[in-house]
């Protein structure tokens, strides 16, 4: 499997999120190819879930569309395994703990490592919950990417950084995904505080980064950025598959340019 932290060497990577199976798994495959061709550095793929409580309306709707056409975690992993040879950037699965628990933590770790998936993000599984998942992922060499938020205590930052691998996901504000308000007012101080504990772990900043203007405001502080809702919205505006893919391409180009111009 491809290495996540490698992607942070010598550049500030663009990490993008799409919902697996939205609007179909075939389309997910095509979007993956387009994103990597346009220079996306890491691709997060959402596991659709009926009750995504850390997500705002855009990703909720995307998740719903995926479920309506019959996407399941099994099918999603099988798809990624199928196209493994064509995927050139690390793939990270992002989803809710019930999906993993229901699949079986051991089986999940085994199947995703065989599918070449590099990392996992579970926003509703805090570091101190009893879950076998951490050990299972470690045994398979899959990164477990953990989240910190602007209100995370120093004691927890230390604990989270110690158990996190790949990169540390810094949530930009107190809110759900797609929350387009301004990032946390003391973003610089927040990320500096995180860095006191994060050692070699690169910091990815995400939630509410919705375009070049926002990128300009924040790009100085993290080591990479994560964009989900805004990309999904851009894709959704397309009326045909071609339009959707072109929109994805154009969106990524704009963001990549902003990262380069303002870094």
């Amino acid at each position: 499997m491809l290495n996540i932290s490698e992607q942070f060497k010598g550049k500030k990577p663009l990490i993008t999120y799409i919902s697996g199976g939205d609007p179909s798994l075939e389309m997910t495959e095509k979007i993956i190819y387009r994103l990597q061709d346009e220079g996306v550095d890491i691709i997060e793929i959402g596991i659709p879930f009926s009750d995504p409580l850390a997500d705002g309306p855009v990703i909720q709707a995307a998740s719903q569309r995926a479920l309506e056409n019959g996407t399941s975690l099994k099918k999603l992993i099988a798809k990624i395994k199928d196209i493994k040879a064509n995927v050139k950037v690390p793939i990270v699965l992002m989803g809710y703990y019930n999906s993993v628990l229901n699949y079986g933590e051991h089986q999940f770790a085994k199947d995703i490592s065989e599918a070449g998936i590099s990392g996992v993000i579970i926003p509703d599984l805090p570091v101190d919950e009893r879950a076998k998942l951490t050990e299972e992922l470690k045994a398979k060499g899959v990164s477990q990417i953990l989240l910190v938020t602007p209100n995370t205590s120093e004691k927890r930052l230390e604990e989270i950084a110690a158990k996190c691998s790949g990169f540390l996901y810094c949530v930009a504000l107190l809110g759900t995904t797609g929350d387009a308000r301004e990032p946390y007012p003391e973003l610089e101080g927040y990320l500096n505080r995180v860095r006191r504990f994060s050692g070699d772990l690169p910091l990815g900043l995400g939630f509410g980064i919705d375009g070049p203007e926002k990128v300009k405001k924040i790009i100085n502080y993290p080591d990479g950025i994560i964009i989900g809702s805004a990309l999904i919205e851009a894709i959704q505006i397309g009326n045909t598959e071609t339009e959707m893919l072109n929109n994805a391409g154009e969106f990524v180009r704009e963001i990549k340019r902003a990262i380069k111009d303002y870094s």
Partner: peptide
């Protein structure tokens, strides 16, 4: 019984933002 659990049931499966609260 560890904190917040009734044997295997319970816990705090929430986004990190809510942990301080």
């Amino acid at each position: 019984m560890s904190r917040g659990y009734f044997n295997e049931f319970g816990g705090r499966f929430v986004p990190e933002t809510l942990i301080p609260a």
